[in-house]
Structures are given as C-alpha cells and as structure tokens.
C-alpha cells in the first residue's frame, strides 16, 4: 500500500491500454511509454501489462504503508527512497514507513519526460471494460476514473515479498534511432498524404519538428513548416488511432497520443508506427525530432524487435528472481 503525497493532477494509473471498446466511443488510453511500463513489470515478475502509475509532473512523492517490491522505469528522476539514491530502471523493496521521492527528470544519455512506478502484482484497481487504464474523458478506469490526488491510497496486487534490486538497460540505449543528429520517429503514409503539396512532403520528412507546450496525453501539437494541401480537404468522421498525424487548417500537425478520442475528421498525412510511439511519448516538451518514412516490413520488424527485447528482459529477470528465491 502506498499513499500519494503530491498533489500532482496529472499522475494516472495506466496499463497497456483498453482494447475492444472503440465501438462504444471509448479510446485506448494506456501508458505513453508502453516499453517502460512493461519493463518495470517484468523486473518484478508481473505480467507485462499490469497497471502502474505514470508520473509526468515532478517532484512526486509517495509514502509506503506496507512492504512491497517496486520498480521505477522511464525518465531518470534521481529518485530517492528516504535518503538512499535509486538507480533509474531499477527494482527493489519499499519498506513500510519509507518515502519515495522523484525529482525533475535529469539530463542523461536519453532525455525522457515520464516515469513509471510499478508495484509487485500491479496496482490493484478494478478492471473496467477490459483495462485498468484511466479514461479521463469517461471518468472511469484507473483510480476512481481520475488523476491521482494527495492522500489517495493504492494497493499492490502482491504485497510483501523480498527482492534483491536489479535493473534493466533502457531500451532507448539498446534500440537507438536518430536521423541527422535528432531523435527519429518512423511513419507510414496515411490516407491524405498524396493530397499535400510536394513542398509539404519535402518539409514533412526533411525538417525538424518541435514539440510545443500545448502537448499532453491527448495529443502533441508540433511546430515547424506549414503543411499545405493541394486543395482544401473535408472528411467524414472516421476512426483514428494514437500515433496518427493530423493536419488542421493551420498547417501545423497534431500527433494524437494515448488519450486521443477514437474518431476524428482532420486530414491525416501519416501515422507513427506502433513500435515507435513510446519514443514520442517520452520526448520532452520543447525538444525536436524528425519523421522518418518507413515501409510495412520495417515497421513489423520494429514491432518484433520491441517484443524480442521485452521477452529477453523477462526471461533474464525470471532467472534472476528464481535464483534469488532459491538462495
């Protein structure tokens, strides 16, 4: 059991997202960095998709009310358990009475903006429509359908236990992706791609895009060259997914993120492949990146690489845990 000490409006309980509810108008939600959430869970022997706390406003602190194994992944926030410094992407035991504190994300080899706090057995909140992710618009799922507040108490699915701390190498280091000195995000063309001018195509792939402060779990508004359709585009409402890159009339793209609504009507120039969405999910506001055109085979290979990385981590973590339990 942990108690939220910070009044951070924006920390939420998330898992890998809600599937199968789109036909009721319910978007997927889920972790902005699904690899970090899954990795934290695997360090603890949880299922990869168990619920965790996604933290995006710092500092953030929780008090531990009962012993529990935990893991911290995502942004390196120079976390401390009482006075003891914790390594990033690390697991350990939280003891009753201790306080876990996360500071602002520090500058590291991988700039990131969201941290994940996983507990053994997952954060114990009820499953709603097949997921424990917070559905903010629908005000259900997660913890009482809302962001966490000071005083909220969250239980671990598997309290107690005893683990020796070990960690994971952040996948950004294992699977780096850059283009011309900036982080790159791979994109497949979407329905209206061909309805933009050649100059817009060149700018879309060639120029750097900046993540503006008007960016959150719903969507990232980007700043860069203006994208212009050959003729005005009017579309009927249709299904959309996290990662879709829409171009409203102003010409500055919006990338729909995890809390995106499940349908929309703006023209779509491309969609970030699912395997790379975590990269953007962690990219800090103000940072710049490039879109990199990819093809279907490469996109599936990227998915396979993510899955293989997680499977490998899971196997090694299991070995480690079993060895420690035997000892």
């Amino acid at each position: 059991m942990i108690e939220i000490l910070s009044d951070t409006a924006l920390a939420t309980v998330q898992d890998l997202g809600r599937t199968g509810a789109l036909n009721w108008g319910v978007g997927t939600s889920g972790a902005m960095d699904p690899l970090a959430l899954a990795a934290g869970n695997l360090l603890l022997g949880n299922a990869a998709g168990d619920a965790a706390i996604e933290i995006q406003v710092f500092p953030f602190a929780v008090r531990v009310h009962a012993d529990c194994a935990f893991a911290l992944t995502g942004a390196d926030c120079a976390a401390r358990m009482d006075e003891q410094t914790l390594l990033p992407w690390w697991s350990g035991m939280a003891r009753a009475g201790q306080t876990l504190r996360l500071g602002l994300p520090v500058a590291t080899a991988w700039p990131a903006s969201r941290a994940y706090l996983c507990l053994a057995g997952g954060i114990d909140v009820p499953e709603m429509l097949g997921s424990r992710s917070t559905q903010l618009r629908g005000a259900f799922g997660g913890y009482a359908g809302r962001a966490l507040r000071q005083g909220d108490l969250l239980r671990a699915g598997r309290p107690g236990g005893d683990v020796n701390g070990f960690g994971a190498v952040p996948p950004a280091l294992a699977m780096p992706l850059q283009q011309d000195g900036l982080p790159a995000i791979r994109v497949l063309r979407a329905a209206e791609y061909d309805r933009y001018t050649p100059a817009s195509h060149a700018a879309f792939w060639g120029e750097a895009w900046r993540i503006t402060p008007q960016s959150d779990r719903y969507g990232y508004r980007l700043a860069g060259p203006s994208l212009t359709p050959i003729a005005p585009i009017e579309l009927r409402s249709h299904g959309i997914v996290p990662g879709v890159i829409q171009v409203p009339h102003g010409g500055q793209p919006i990338v729909q993120m995890r809390d995106a609504q499940p349908s929309g009507g703006y023209p779509k120039i491309g969609t970030i492949i699912e395997a790379d969405l975590w990269r953007l999910g962690q990219a800090p506001i103000g940072s710049r990146f490039r879109f990199l055109e990819t093809d279907w085979a490469t996109a599936l290979a990227a998915r396979d690489a993510n899955e293989a990385w997680l499977a490998g981590l899971g196997r090694l973590a299991n070995l480690q845990r079993l060895g420690a339990a035997a000892a």
């Binding site: 390594l87 992407w89 690390w90 020796n164 701390g165 070990f166 960690g167 994971a168 190498v169 996948p171 294992a174 990385w309 490998g312 981590l313 090694l316 973590a317 480690q320």
Partner: peptide, 14 residues
Amino acid sequence: QIIALLQIDALLMP
C-alpha cells in the same frame, strides 16, 4: 552500496 554493474543483455545486476 552499488559500486558497479554487470550487464547481461537487457538486465543490469548490482
């Protein structure tokens, strides 16, 4: 205190 690490693929051991 963790004074060094042993990296085994994706895993880091203290």
